[in-house]
Design a protein around this nucleic acid. Structure first.
Length: 589
RNA sequence: GGGGGUGUAGCUCAGUUGGUUAGAGCGCUGGCCUGUCAAGCCAGAGGUCGCGGGUUCGAGCCCCGUCACUCCCGCCA
């Protein structure tokens, strides 16, 4: 809370209310709106705490009145005056300070201001580029400042909650080494080691594990992370993780700790989080929602129709089933009378998402059945389809016949689109765990197995031997925290056995000498009595974005970057001098 | 790397089939005004129509290229 200590002011603007009526105050801040009535001037004074109306009456001070005539928006002023109740009929209930005003007796201009490129007030609709170019002006706007305050409260509460549970904050290096796997690294040339480079951390993953080997037992850090990948509304090249690691724990310990901490965070900012949170296996999430970060605030769940069409004459269905695939469906309640072009758009979305096409049956409001494929269905199959999907008149059944993973993913994309188009309202903070992720996923493009979370994830003990023989079947002690269909955190138990760690790295296609070269320090550390350990990292930006009700993490970052990774204010990135390049032994084309 | 959207006054936008001097609201400047809070009234200033090229008698509008912003796919352990 901003207060008047250590400052030129006696009070903050937002602190004035009926209780301070009669007090003589000195305020400092920025000039907002000015309403000049000729013989009387109203001026909104804004500081971080809020806005208060200051009234300039020549009868109170002729000199102050002259100043008020001259000041313009965003000038910085110091105002002396007396708080008083507003006259009958001039109260402003829309303003927190709307019951009072300050009659100004002396006014000092501390600094002048150019006319700002956009108006400094809530609710403006200005291009983000303009706002970013003068971000310091944007930050003066109450809603931007409020987002930063919210972010501060969340991180402060995190610190407090973790500190009271015996965690200590430890800083880890920003200049680290590049390791294979994961995102593209931001790299930093080394002056003292010609031709060699540091990498900025994608996360403090290995260092926090080494802190566990170091016996710290409970660590956390509000850590900046860097990934040189393309941006999105919820992705910036640098972002902040609440990074946590614990020793001597099982999955349940970490999830319970996180739930307790999350409940305290949410409480801090005025929301209830009922714990324990629901837990859903990755397999169930994919099967029911077609996503590993399901938004469970609405239904439209996926239904398996493989049984219904087990002996289908329809070649597309029969073919999918005979090659080990499935027929799955989603019932769009209320879409039965959609136009053909609207359904065609869904079909295109399905194709773009990897399906060969969308088979659909529309049950129109007046009891008709429209479908390009129903002619291939028997009456019994049609009836079974109705039963299995629960489709009624006015509903649209969308079906995908494909490999299970493809069918799930396509319908998962479709499900979200349908929710949008059907106007399904999604409010609140829908929070759950998705657990038991597969250890590996097959990268068809590179024809190799990749880590699903990261290469340090502990596989299920009973699946260890499958690492070599059937990697796709290996499940792992990995978990994601999902809120409103967004991954806001994720973690794993870690491998603490050096042999197992080497086996996993080999599975990922690394040669032994490469493992020794790039991960030798880790394997060696594990060989010196590494405790069982695990942890989690929360995306602070995304969490605060959701809490702020924003659509973009740029809204909750003080100085964000554009989608091309540039900062329009400082013009970063920029060229450097020939001398700087020479120092770090680089030549640029 | 690919796809969609956007780019006209400081800001948000309109701009017809290609046709005279490119408009509006807000903001800004000046004037009037003692209870406004989106103050009001009057007057005024303000334009590289993102940039480059092309078609045309003539381009904000059509074509080609390019840049920027934004959303999405790829990518993001």
């Amino acid at each position: 809370m901003l207060d008047a200590r250590y400052s030129m002011r006696s009070h903050t603007a937002g602190s004035l209310n009926k209780a301070t009526v009669g007090e003589t105050v000195r305020l400092t801040g920025w000039v907002g709106k000015r309403r000049d009535h000729g013989g009387l001037i109203f001026l909104d004074l804004r500081d971080r705490s809020g806005i208060v109306q200051c009234t300039f009456d020549p009868d109170a001070s002729g000199a102050a009145f002259v100043v008020a005539e001259q000041v313009r928006p965003e000038w910085v002023v110091m105002l002396d005056g007396v708080v008083r109740e507003r006259p009958e009929g001039t109260l402003n209930p829309a303003m927190p300070t709307g019951e009072i005003e300050v009659i100004i007796t002396a006014a000092t201009v501390l600094n002048r201001s150019e006319t700002p490129p956009f108006e400094i007030e809530a609710g403006i609709d200005t291009d983000e580029l303009t706002r970013m170019k003068w971000r310091y002006l944007d930050i003066r706007r109450p809603e931007v400042a409020a987002a930063l305050v919210l972010r501060d409260r969340v991180s402060q509460r995190f610190r407090k909650s973790l500190e009271t549970r015996g965690f200590i904050e430890v800083e880890t290096p920003i200049l680290g080494r590049s390791t294979p796997e994961g995102a593209r690294d931001f790299i930093v040339p080394s002056r003292m080691s010609p031709g060699k480079f540091y990498a900025l951390p994608q996360s403090p993953q290995l260092f926090k594990q080494l802190l566990m080997v170091g016996g710290i037992e409970r660590y956390y850090q509000i850590a900046r992370c860097f990934r040189d990948e393309d941006l999105r509304a919820d992705r910036q090249p640098e972002f902040t993780q609440i990074d946590i690691e614990m020793s001597f724990v099982e999955v349940n310990d970490i999830l319970q700790m996180m739930e307790d901490v999350m409940r305290e965070i949410m409480h801090e900012v005025g929301h209830d989080l009922p714990v324990p949170l629901p837990r859903m296996t990755w397999h169930d999430a994919m099967d029911r929602f077609g996503s590993d970060r399901p938004d469970t605030r609405f239904g439209l769940e996926l239904v398996d129709l493989s049984g219904v069409f087990a002996s289908s004459e329809f070649k597309v269905f029969a073919g999918a089933l005979s090659s080990g695939g499935v027929i799955k469906a989603i019932t769009a309640t209320g879409a039965g009378d959609w136009s053909r072009s609207r359904i065609d758009a869904l079909n295109q979305l399905a194709i773009d998402s990897g399906a060969k096409g969308l088979a659909w049956v529309a049950f129109t409001g007046d009891g008709e059945v429209k479908s390009p494929v129903s002619k291939f269905f028997s009456a019994e199959e049609m009836e079974a389809l109705r039963l299995a999907t629960g489709a009624k008149a006015g509903d649209l059944v969308c079906m995908v016949a494909d490999a299970r993973a493809t069918a799930n993913e396509v319908l998962g994309v479709l499900r979200l689109r349908l929710a949008d188009e059907l106007g399904i309202e999604r409010t609140g903070f829908d929070t759950l765990w998705v657990v038991d992720f597969p250890m590996f996923k097959y990268d068809a493009g590179e024809d190799r197995w990749a880590a699903n979370h990261h290469p340090f994830t502990l596989p299920f003990a009973e699946h260890e031997e499958l690492v070599e023989t059937d990697p796709g079947a290996v499940l792992s002690y990995a978990y994601d925290l999902v809120m409103n269909g967004l991954e806001i955190g994720g973690g794993t138990l870690r491998i603490h056995n050096p042999e197992l760690q080497s086996r996993v790295l080999r599975r990922l296609g690394l040669e032994q000498d490469e493992i020794t070269e790039k991960f030798g320090f880790l394997i060696e550390a594990l060989s010196f009595g590494a405790p069982p350990h695990g942890g989690i990292a929360l995306g602070l930006d995304r969490l605060v974005m959701l809490l702020a009700g924003s659509q973009s993490i740029r809204d909750v970052i003080a100085f964000p970057k554009t989608s091309s990774g540039a900062d329009p204010m400082t013009q970063a990135p920029d060229v450097v001098s020939a001398r700087q390049l020479k120092d770090v032994h680089l030549r640029v084309d």
